[in-house]
Write a protein that binds this DNA or RNA. Structure first.
Length: 589
RNA sequence: GGUCUCGUGGUGUAGCGGCCUAACAUGCGGCCCUGUCAAGGCCGAGAUCGCGGGUUCGAAUCCCGUCGGGACCGCCA
C-alpha cells in the first residue's frame, strides 16, 4: 500500500496515528541533526521530521534527497512541540515523525522551481514542461476549481431534469462563422469531416428528437487567431431546452450561476440578484461594447447638443457628417502627463479614432488639447451634464456613432486597469438582450446573421425582414461578466419556412442550402418543437473565479498564442504513408 | 495580415556605447549546523547577452533584418 492518507488531510486529530504517505519533496530543511521535508501531493503539504536517531543508511539517504523526489514515508503523526506550530500551513499543527523512508523515484534538477510562484518562468518554458508547471499549488487549485465548477453544473442540471448527451467531434463543415478545423477522410478521399465550432445543429436535432432538456460539457473548435481569452479548442456548457421562451432559459442559467458562485468560489460577490438585463443598444451607448464591465461607472455620455454650435472644427466636422460627440470622465486624471496622454491617444487611434481631444478640469479652469476651442458656456454646461469635478479628465470622441462608442469603450477599460476601478472580487453578471438580427458587412455588402443563422427573429419584426433588415431584432441573448462575453444563446427557428427565408437572406443559393443544411430543414418538417438554449464558456468562467489573467492558466494543456502545443510540439509533420492513405499531396513544402 | 512589446548563467532580474574579465537573487555542487518552515552560514561551478548583418577605434547596450514569446487590432456565425 503506497499510502494510508493524503498529505493535506492530516490534522491534530490524527495525532498518535501511524500513517504512510507518498508524495513529492516540496522543500527540505536540513539542520545537520534534525531535518525536515515538506511532502506534497495534490491535497496539500505536510512536514516530515527526520530525527537523528534513525539508522545510518536512512540518514545517508536523507542527505541525497532533493527537490521533487518521490518518497514514501512511514511515520507517526505528532502534535508539534509548543511554539513550533506553523499557522500558515493547513497541516501546521502536526508533523509526521519519519520511521522509514523509501525513494519511489528520484528526480533530476527541475528546469524551474514549482514550490513557489516567485520568479515565475517565461510562459514558453512553463508550457514546455506543463506536467511540472501543473504541480504548482496555483495550477493544481485551478484544476480542482474547474472540476468543482463542472461537477456543480452537472449536478444542478441533473436536478432540473436535464440529461447529458455526447455529440460527435467529427461532423460537417459549415459555410458561415469561424474557420473549421478539417479532418480528411481516408474512406472518402477528398472529403472532410469538420470539428464542431459548437454542437449547435446537433443539439437542435436532439430537441427534434424529443430529448427535451439536454446539456453537455462540450469541446468546441474554431480555427481563428488566438487571444488571452481564446484558445483553438475550448469548453462550453452547452444546453438546449424545448418549449421555452427567452426568460425560461435566462432564469435557469441565472439560477445555476447564482447558486454555483458561492459554492465554488465563496470569496466572489455577485453584483446583483436578479441580474440586470441591458439591451444591446443601451450597452453600446453607455459602455461602447456589447460585453460591458459593470463593476465601475465611467459611462459614455453623448454631449453632441452642448457642442451643436461649436467653433471646434473637429467637433463641427463630426456633427455635420452625421456623427456624434461623446465623452467619458476619468476621475483624478487631470494631471496625466503629456507622455501618458500621447500613449493613450495611440490606443484611441488603434480603435479607429482620428484623435483624442481632452479637457482637464483644474483649479485654474480647463486645460488640455480641446481647451482652446471651447467656450466658457460650453465648459459650464458640459461640467454640469457629465458631472465633472476638479481633478477630472474629460476625453472626447467625435466621429460616427459606432466609432465613437468603440473608442470610448476601449478608453474606459484602459482607465479601469490604470486606476484600479474594478473590484476584482465582484462578479458583475448581466444579460445583454435585444440584439439586432442582421449585421451589415461593409466589405462584402451583404447582410450577415449577427448571432448564427438558426436564431429566431422577434415575431413582431418578421415583416421588416426584406424592407428593413437592420431593424429586425432577434431573440438572442448574451451573458456578460466583468467585460467578458461569458455565454451566448437564443431562441431558435423551429419552422422550415422561416429557416429557409433566413438562409435566403444570407445569400445562400437553393443548392447550397440543400447540401449544407438540408438535414436541418428536413428535420423541421417532422414536428420540431419550439426550443432555445445557450452555451456558457467554462474556461473564461474559471479564469475569473481563479483570478487568472488568461484562460491558459485554467486549461491543463493549452496552446500558445500561435496555436502550438510546445510540450508535444504539435502541429507536426506526419509520415508520408499517412498522407498517401489520405491521398493528400502538397503543392509545395 | 497589422501595431506595440520582450528575448542576458538552469530560473527570474540588473546592466542600455568604454568602468562588463557581465552584477544580484534563486537553483545547482561541496562543507558546517538538532526545531526549521522562502531555514541559516561558508566555499565553488555555471552566460561567447536569441540568431545574422551593419554603424563605431570599441556593441549585451545603437541601427537593419530574422526567429521565438506576449498584449492588442483585424478575425472569432
Amino acid at each position: 500500500m503506497y499510502r494510508t492518507h493524503t498529505c493535506g488531510e492530516l490534522r491534530a486529530s490524527h495525532a498518535g496515528e501511524s500513517v504512510t504517505l507518498s508524495g513529492w519533496v516540496n522543500r527540505r530543511r536540513d539542520h545537520g541533526g534534525v531535518a525536515f521535508f515538506d511532502l506534497r501531493d495534490r491535497s496539500g503539504v505536510v512536514q516530515i521530521t527526520i530525527n537523528p536517531d534513525l539508522p545510518k543508511e536512512t540518514l545517508d539517504l536523507v542527505e541525497d534527497v532533493r527537490f521533487e523526489w518521490v518518497l514514501q514515508i512511514e511515520g507517526l503523526v505528532q502534535k508539534r512541540p509548543a511554539g513550533n506550530e506553523n499557522p500558515n500551513m493547513e497541516t501546521g499543527e502536526i508533523e509526521v515523525i519519519a520511521k522509514n523512508i523509501t525513494v519511489l523515484n528520484p528526480a533530476k534538477t527541475l528546469p524551474f522551481m514549482v514550490s513557489s510562484d516567485a520568479d515565475l518562468p517565461d510562459e514558453n518554458t512553463r508550457l514546455k514542461y506543463r506536467y511540472l508547471d501543473l504541480r504548482r499549488e496555483r495550477l493544481t487549485n485551478n484544476m480542482v476549481l474547474r472540476h468543482k465548477v463542472i461537477k456543480f453544473m452537472r449536478d444542478y442540471l441533473d436536478k432540473q431534469g436535464f440529461i447529458e448527451i455526447e455529440t460527435p467531434i467529427m461532423f460537417k463543415a459549415t459555410p458561415e462563422g469561424a474557420r473549421d478545423y478539417l479532418v480528411p477522410s481516408r474512406i472518402y478521399p477528398g472529403q472532410f469531416y469538420a470539428l464542431p465550432q459548437s454542437p449547435q445543429q446537433l443539439k437542435q436535432l436532439l430537441m427534434v428528437a424529443g430529448m427535451d432538456k439536454y446539456f453537455q460539457i462540450a469541446r468546441c473548435f474554431r480555427d481563428e487567431d488566438l487571444r488571452g481569452d481564446r484558445q483553438p479548442e475550448f469548453t462550453q456548457l452547452d444546453l438546449e431546452m424545448s418549449y421555452v421562451h427567452r426568460d425560461d432559459v435566462l432564469d435557469l442559467v441565472e439560477g445555476l450561476f447564482t447558486e454555483m458562485i458561492p459554492a465554488v468560489a465563496p470569496h466572489k460577490k455577485l453584483l446583483s440578484k436578479p441580474w440586470r438585463k441591458i439591451s444591446y443598444r443601451e450597452a453600446m451607448e453607455k459602455y461602447g461594447t456589447d460585453k460591458p464591465d459593470l463593476r465601475f461607472g465611467m459611462e459614455l455620455q453623448d454631449v453632441s447638443d452642448i457642442f451643436a454650435k461649436s467653433e471646434f472644427k473637429v467637433f463641427q466636422g463630426a456633427l455635420s457628417s452625421g456623427g456624434v460627440i461623446k465623452c467619458i470622465v476619468a476621475p483624478k486624471s487631470a494631471d496625466m502627463s503629456r507622455k501618458e496622454i500621447d500613449a493613450l491617444t495611440e490606443v484611441a487611434k488603434s480603435l479607429g479614432a482620428k484623435g483624442m481631444p481632452t479637457l482637464a478640469v483644474t483649479s485654474e479652469g480647463v486645460k488640455g488639447s480641446a481647451s482652446k476651442f471651447v467656450s466658457a458656456e460650453e465648459v459650464e454646461s458640459l461640467k454640469a451634464k457629465v458631472n465633472a469635478k476638479e481633478g477630472d479628465l474629460i476625453l472626447f470622441a467625435s466621429d460616427a456613432k459606432a466609432i465613437a462608442n468603440k473608442v470610448l469603450g476601449g478608453l474606459r477599460v484602459w482607465f479601469r486597469d490604470k486606476l484600479n476601478l474594478a473590484d476584482e472580487n465582484l462578479m458583475a453578471f448581466a444579460w445583454i438582450v435585444d440584439f439586432p438580427f442582421f449585421a451589415y458587412n461593409e466589405e462584402t455588402k451583404t447582410w450577415e446573421s449577427e448571432h448564427h443563422p438558426f436564431t429566431m427573429p422577434k415575431l413582431e419584426d418578421l415583416d421588416k425582414f426584406e424592407s428593413n433588415p437592420g431593424e429586425v431584432m432577434s431573440d438572442a441573448y448574451d451573458m456578460v461578466c466583468n467585460g467578458y462575453e461569458m455565454a451566448s444563446g437564443s431562441i431558435r427557428i423551429h419552422r422550415r419556412d422561416v429557416q429557409m427565408k433566413m438562409f435566403q437572406m444570407l445569400g445562400l443559393s437553393d443548392e447550397e442550402i440543400k447540401t449544407k443544411f438540408g438535414h436541418m430543414l428536413e428535420a423541421f418538417e417532422y414536428g420540431a418543437p419550439p426550443h432555445g438554449g445557450m452555451a456558457p464558456g467554462i474556461d473564461r468562467l474559471v479564469m475569473l473565479l481563479a483570478d487568472e489573467p488568461n484562460i491558459r492558466e485554467v486549461i491543463a494543456f493549452p496552446k500558445n498564442q500561435t496555436g502550438r502545443d510546445v510540450m508535444a510540439d504539435a502541429p507536426s509533420e506526419v509520415e508520408p504513408k499517412q498522407l498517401k492513405e489520405l491521398q493528400i499531396k502538397f503543392e509545395q513544402k
